[in-house]
Nucleic acid binder design. Structure first.
Length: 112
DNA sequence: ACTTTGACTTGCA
DNA sequence: ATGCAAGCCAAAG
């Protein structure tokens, strides 16, 4: 495994997000053991390979407020929201209804 | 090799 | 409730 496997873990995890669901950077980081380093998740998504970019539903990754913080990094700032809406995600103003669509990654090997 | 910034989060004032 | 600062790890300059 390469040292940058952290990126691969992020990609794999985001790819696991069910259709019509969203997750937060904090939860992803926590699932990877970097519970306090949500920035790395964002950085990893920024470094998503072009081939993976189409596979990884980065539009399902939002900040802890359910806000589409990364929308500006997309091809267009609106594509992110439109994609989520197309998947049946309920929006509350500019934020996703985390109460309904917040998905938490399955932590198989959880540690204290 | 050191400094700055980054798709974030939490805490204190 | 709103605003500012610190913490976090990694990559680019």
């Amino acid at each position: 495994m390469s040292k940058s496997d952290f990126y691969h873990q992020v990609y794999a995890l985001v790819r696991r997000v069910p259709h019509g669901m969203v997750t937060t950077y904090g939860h992803i980081a926590a699932a990877l053991g970097l519970r306090s380093s949500a920035r790395m998740v964002g950085w990893a998504l920024n470094a998503i390979p072009v081939d993976q970019r189409l596979e990884i539903p980065a539009h399902r990754v939002v900040n802890r407020l359910g806000e589409l913080s990364g929308k500006m990094h997309f091809e267009t700032p609106h594509v992110m929201r439109e994609r989520l809406e197309a998947e049946g995600v309920a929006f509350n103003g500019d934020c996703v209804d985390l109460k309904r669509h917040l998905w938490v990654p399955d932590v198989t090997s959880e540690e204290s």
